[in-house]
């Protein structure tokens, strides 16, 4: 498979800008260190040349930015989509959240993105730079010299459990598209299902108690595109800016996950951005797994225009009581 490099993307972006196909590029902008890459808009080849980067930290899913971008009536925007991003892209299209005509999507293959926290866990704090070297990362540290880590040991959780290397939407593809992967993404969910109620309760109590209600999980989520969130609506009765009681942790996270149930593509952005490292993706995956088990296998975003499982039914659907029984014995 062709390895995507900054140069290839740069050339493609410059070409499309020059041809007038697009007038701006949604890309990753270099930061202070190698890992603090920021999503940014570029409008000229010179800007791109100066700041555009692509590497193991270009993980941000750009799909949601298209909602805002395509509302600005300024021609087409170029967006680079990794396979997982294309699912969010389709899901947003299904929900008519952005204008497809104003986007030029270039699919790019992806071997997985790195998680700086995992790198720091292995190399220690004080990481002044990271370089790619084949399948390894060379980590420059402030106090312990250079360390070589296998990229495989630095992958973000969502990439370790990547569900698909297949691009489900694009105007143009760089390299080749891959296949849907028979991943192990539900292993962790299954492990929890096999625990007792008490153990599960203790597990989530501990995890969710760290929540600081920064709303990053909601704000980054490509499926959370309500104009006004129920948790930000003073008339909803549940508006809250902070967790005043542990009940609210559970309410917020159950409802957050429920509101995207059947629409969540499992892109993993929620867990990536959580400043408190809460494994939020497990809640979303639980819903995905239940939907697959109770009804039909369903992958949100696989195709544009699919009918989501929660706005669908069959006469012979199982009863909620059976569902609860069965979900404990999914295996």
């Amino acid at each position: 498979m062709q390895k995507v490099t900054r140069e290839i993307l740069l050339a493609k972006a410059a070409e499309l800008l020059a041809a007038g196909t697009v007038n701006r590029v949604l890309g990753w902008k270099a930061g202070e260190f190698t890992y603090d890459v920021t999503p940014a808009l570029f409008t000229t080849a010179a800007e791109l040349e100066k700041d555009f980067v692509y590497g193991p930290f270009s993980g941000a899913n750009f799909s949601k930015y298209l909602v805002k971008e395509t509302r600005r009536d300024e021609g087409k925007v170029l967006v680079f989509l990794k396979p997982c991003d294309t699912y969010s892209f389709n899901q947003l299209l299904t929900e008519h959240r952005f204008d497809r005509e104003r986007v030029y999507a270039v699919g790019i293959p992806c071997d997985g993105m790195a998680d700086i926290q995992r790198i720091k866990d292995q190399a220690g704090d004080g990481v002044s730079g990271v370089e790619c070297d084949g399948d390894n990362l060379i980590v420059h540290t402030l106090y312990d010299g250079d360390k070589t880590l296998a990229m495989a040991d630095c992958l973000a959780e969502r990439c370790v459990n990547c569900k698909s290397k297949k691009h489900v939407a694009y105007d143009e593809l760089i390299g080749e598209t891959g296949d849907v992967i028979d991943s192990h993404r539900f292993d962790e969910v299954e492990k929890l299902e096999k625990m007792t109620e008490d153990e599960r309760f203790a597990f989530w109590q501990n995890e969710l108690s760290r929540c600081i209600r920064c709303n990053a999980c909601r704000d980054v989520c490509p499926a959370c595109t309500c104009e006004k969130c129920v948790f930000g609506n003073p008339n909803s009765g549940v508006e809250n800016k902070a967790i005043s009681d542990s009940f609210e942790e559970k309410m917020f996270h159950v409802i957050r996950a429920f509101h995207v149930a059947g629409r969540c593509t499992d892109c993993g952005e929620c867990s990536r951005v959580c400043p408190q490292n809460i494994p939020l993706h497990l809640l979303n995956r639980k819903f995905i797994r239940d939907i697959d088990n109770f009804y039909d296998e369903y992958q949100a975003g696989a195709e544009v225009g699919q009918r989501a499982p929660l706005v669908n039914y069959k006469q012979e659907d199982l009863e909620p009581s059976e569902a609860v029984e069965r979900s404990g014995n999914n295996a």
């Binding site: 599960r200 309760f201 159950v254 429920f258």
Partner: peptide, 13 residues
Amino acid sequence: MALLFSMLNFLGI
């Protein structure tokens, strides 16, 4: 409700 109750149980309720 099938999904919600299953989720609540997943949280240990």
